[in-house]
Every structure is written in structure tokens, then in C-alpha cells.
Amino acid sequence: MTMLPEEPSAKKLGLVIDLDICVGCHACVVNCKEWNTGSEGAPLSDVNAYGAQQTGAWLNRIHTFEVKTDSVAQVVHFPKSCLHCTDAPCVTVCPTGASYKRVDDGIVLVNEDHCIGCGLCAWACPYGAREMDPVEQVMKKCTLCVDRIYNENLPEEDRVPACVRTCPTGARAFGDLGDPESDVSQSVRDRGGFDLLPEQETSPVNKYLPPREKRHLVASDRSQPDSQTELQSPDVNGFWGWVDSTLTKLG
């Protein structure tokens, strides 16, 4: 059912990502891919994986941003996966009922057997958390490793999402953000954890902890950044290339 649960679940499983600690090693990205390509659903596929123009579905990606602070520019590695929003817009737009939010723990999932691959949920998600599988043609997203966290066949220390288990620096923490006394909730309180794109009113469960202030760095002769160079237009071939060149000629 693509209606959201009438009452938000008391239990809100999710991640807290510490931007102060993440070093951008992409280990969580790789382990996420590895776990989810071999799990119960369809594999998380790639096309032309060793060719020049490879593409594929990933459930977790790391962007790297430069933040121009008052003193020096700071590099922030920024892991991003599904935030399992309380008011998930991806769920309500789904026409088939394939997308749903679990009442018990708030995890947002896709039933791949019912997904028609219309892509509307990915349009509705502001975070880019959903990607179309290029081979299966169904929507893929982070499951919060629902097949690990409740899996009694795994040793207890492995019953956390793959990205959390693999992070060498401990930048990702998993827990119940609906419980104010949980470790993750406390770290959000202590460190001033925040939501991404709060103006989209999705009430994400996942929180981010800001980078700590860098104390020993002093700006020395900070030169002005180059004036923004004009973005290079992408090369377009075929029919669109023809449209492009014809319209350019028209002025």
C-alpha cells in the first residue's frame, strides 16, 4: 500500500552519518554494492562495467564538497543513501503499491515483483536515493540491509547495515532514531545533527553530524578563486546533435 502509515512508527531505524569523520574512502559504497548484488532480490546490476561508458545502480554514493569557510576552504566527504523519510514522497506517488514504508520500523522498501519501473518515485525523491536498475528495469534503493539487521544466521556484530559494518573510521552509526535514549539519538543531540533539504518537508530519519571546527588552520594569503569559467557544453550526437546545430545556426 502506498499510503504512509497513519501514525509514524515509534521505531525509526536509520543512520547517523558523521561528516567530521568520513574520509571518503568509498568502502561503504563498495560493500553496499557487494551485499546487495548478492542478496535476495534481483542483483544490483551494471552495464558495460569494464567499458568506456559504464553505468549501473548503486544504493549509496559519496559526493565530495568544498566548503568555503571564513578561514580556509574545507573538504567534506558526503555519503548519501536513502534517508528513510517519515513523510516519504517516493512512497505516496507509487501507482502500484510496490513502494511502501514499514509500520514496525519505518524502513522504506520496494517490492520488486510489483514495480512497473515507471521511475516516478525517483522523480519524487529530492535526495537521489532511488536508481533504476538498468537490467532488471525495476527501482532499487537502500533497504537498510533489512536482510542483515534481523538475520539470526549472522553473528550478532554483523547485524547492522553493510555500509556501517565496513566503515573503517566509524563515520556511520545505525540505530533507532525514534528512541530518544539510543546512542544515535544522543549523538544527534550532542553534535547538532541536521536534516538534508529540510524545506522539502520529508522529515528524514537519517541525520548528519556537521564537521567540527578546525582550530589550527589559519588562512594565509587566500587568493580569490578564479571567476567562474563558462561551463563546457556537453557534446551531443545523432538527432539531438542535429537539432542543436540547426538551432544554433538560427541564432
Partner: peptide, 24 residues
């Protein structure tokens, strides 16, 4: 607002998560 880092300063993309254009 997307990164929540606005309180620190202006935010620009330094590195994309991947080399090729993705589905998104």
C-alpha cells in the same frame, strides 16, 4: 541546504561520486 553545510560557508561540488554520468 542540500548538504546542510550552509552555516560553514559556500558549498561547491569538488568531486562527483563517480566518473561517468549516472542514471540520476
Amino acid at each position: 541546504t542540500a548538504t546542510g553545510l550552509g552555516s560553514l560557508g559556500q558549498v561547491d561540488l569538488l568531486m562527483s561520486p563517480h566518473t561517468e554520468e549516472n542514471w540520476l
